[in-house]
Design a protein around this nucleic acid. Sequence first.
RNA 1: GAAUCUAUAGCUCAGUUGGUUAGAGCGCUUCAUUGACAUUGAAGAGGUCAGAGGUUCGAGUCCUCUUAGAUUCACCA
Length: 769
Amino acid sequence: MDKSYNPAKEPEIYQSWEKSGAFTPIVPPNPKKARKEKEPFTIILPPPNANNPLHAGHALYAVEDIMIRYHRMLGDPTLWLPGTDHAGIETQFVYEKELKKEGKSRFDYDRDTLFKKIFEFVNTNRDLAKNQMKRLGFSLDWTREKFAMDEDHNQRIYAVFRKMVSENLVYRDEKIVNYCTFCGTSFSNLEVLHKSVDSHLWYFKYPVVGEKDRYVTVATTRPETMLGDTAVAVNPKDKRYSDLKNKKLLLPLVNREIPIIFDSSIDIKFGTGAVKVTPSHSPEDYDLGKKFNLKFIRIFDYDGKANDNVPKKYQGLFPNQLRQAVIDDLTTIGLMEKIKDYSHEVGHCYRCGRPIEPITSPQWFVKMKDLAASATKAVKDEKVTIFPKRFKKSFLLWMNDIRDWNISRQIVWGQRIPAWYVLDNNPEVLINFVTKDGSNVSGYWRDLQSQYDFSQIESGLQTLNAPADSPYYLSKEEAKKQGKLILQETDTFDTWFSSGQWPYSTLGWDPNGNHSPDFDYFYPTTVLDTMWDILFFWVARMIIFGLYVTGEVPFKVAHMHSRVLDAKGQKMSKSKGNAVNPVDIAQNYGADALRMALVIGVAPGSDIALSDDKIRAQRNFVNKIWNASRFVLMIIERFKEKNPDLKISSDIDISALNKDDKSILDNLNKIISSTSSNLNKYRFGQASEDLYHFFWHDFCDVYIEKTKDRGEEVIPVLLTVLITSLKLLHPFIPFVTESVYQILRGQTKLVESQLITSTWPKSVSLPQK
RNA sequence: GAAUCUAUAGCUCAGUUGGUUAGAGCGCUUCAUUGACAUUGAAGAGGUCAGAGGUUCGAGUCCUCUUAGAUUCACCA
């Protein structure tokens, strides 16, 4: 044996495991029945994004590997299913940055071409993550690997979509959505970051029509939207304005007469108690607009510029430019009353960081109320146990006031929504396309149809935007019955609409009920392990979809793991330059050292500061195991030299044990039961720490030292404690334990061929005290 | 605005349902060690467990408040 452990050989060990079939469970002939007799232990890997190499956080898949290896050793049929996610907006955002380097942008391509280019880009990256996961020792069943853009997965989510449409759980509507004009897409509420912004409250005077020198002053944080105001709202109990019933105001700069409306939602104490109402650009005002049947005047286009609903001099300005122009002009004409400092929360795009523009836009929504209710019930009834417990509370809180989910994204990378529009009788469809000579054209079908032939529009199509009440058909064939000029919706599904269906889809759920044996055997899965930051994005959606589509929860336990931070406790990110590549660490110190460093002494769900010190300490521990094993083998050799007939065995003769033997075996029994119990309770930090202490202190420092002046009778106890320790440690540090085991196997009589598939230890029977 | 979490040795953190002298890693001090391992061993210094109050025979552990920090959720002008 080498003088110290050499992690360079870890990949060979991984190959031998994979080749032996240890990662691949066998599905019995009658899976449903077999499941009832013995339930498999199943984890679906949270699929990493296909667009990027793994980061340190992904190394925490180690937690899943620990559970998987533990259950495999317990003898449970065990499946850990790998896959990668297409990660819609994330990937497109990354790819657009690549395009920018070439001096191109998404506007240079029709959507089909752009889609194909992104697909190629993703394919070149996909194997990277896979090899990294192998390097870290994750015992995933690669024969079942999936990708979120696999055709069978697409077909499944399309089927679910159609079902939801037919049951009125999916609807189209023109509502206020969170829109990023830079990314060119809407977002769900979850994808909006609320940042505190130091700004101002501007007080404008709106003249009262027909009354000389009388004004109503409104206070606003968004002067620019005043060009789209269609009312001013006050509280009916506010005496300052009670005489203004049936009066109108003259909107300055625009010279439009707007009504005064009375609604109890208006806070009398805020500002002047009078609020400008812009139904097309503010969520609250949208509600008022609906309630009072106000005009909806959208003043910003999808590119963020002011459109022709504003006076000519303002057209084409971006919101911040428009703001300044409005402030200047109101000041000039003497209608700016005052400006106060004011700090408030503004929604920003989680992707590009720019302010979100709330605008009305036709989009696809999922009705959440009933779906959320069933998920809430499942969690309350512990059909799904959320661990650590504190996340259960925030889950229920979030579910409690959930809003309808905007599932359509105006990007190309993702599953294109399977709905078709008929242009023949739908002139108001807004179309963007690239012409044959490469220029961008945008316009309504009513105007375009005379200038371009349909085939050019179809082949150059970038986006279309159909009015919310446009009829649509769920297949091209259906649509064709209605007309000749057919275009498919260009919006794609929110990534989470796809990944929310990951558990049953990857296992082979079938819309027609002909489920695969895998689905019958492994679904519902056992544990879902992920970081808490996607509890709402992903975990909640999976529970919702699972219950809706299969009638069962997708997993029984949702285990939220820690967040990996750098040595200083800072969030890792590429831009900060403090991101570490887990594979680099594995090359330098061994995957085992990294894995151990990530779990030892970490409380459930708390942050992990990953430092070099910590990794080195665990590298030392791994080496300690190597050397303790080397020592045991060495003294066996020495006894053999003295006595060539010596039988090497780990069978313990209870009557021959001395005090030290009994003490170490007693501790061994304790560590066996505490490790099992800690693993059952997801207390990986405690389990690993106890094992560390037992092996290094109890076994090496105390017991081995004491055996140094004893005879060959120590061999069975030494072997028993060593082999049992290797088994207990194997889920955490699989490589060193397996490689030591293989060496031991060559030199002593060991029955089991691999540690990975060996049985979990049971306590040694000792004489009663 | 709502909720959650954290505050324990110089640093990074463990400490399950409350129970004897509060632990680990790294760092520090002294010593040992040339055949398991210097990626070692032994001994040691170092904490009024943020502060105040309460429950209890007993609290780092439960409750209340205060202070400091972090995070998440949230359509308020």
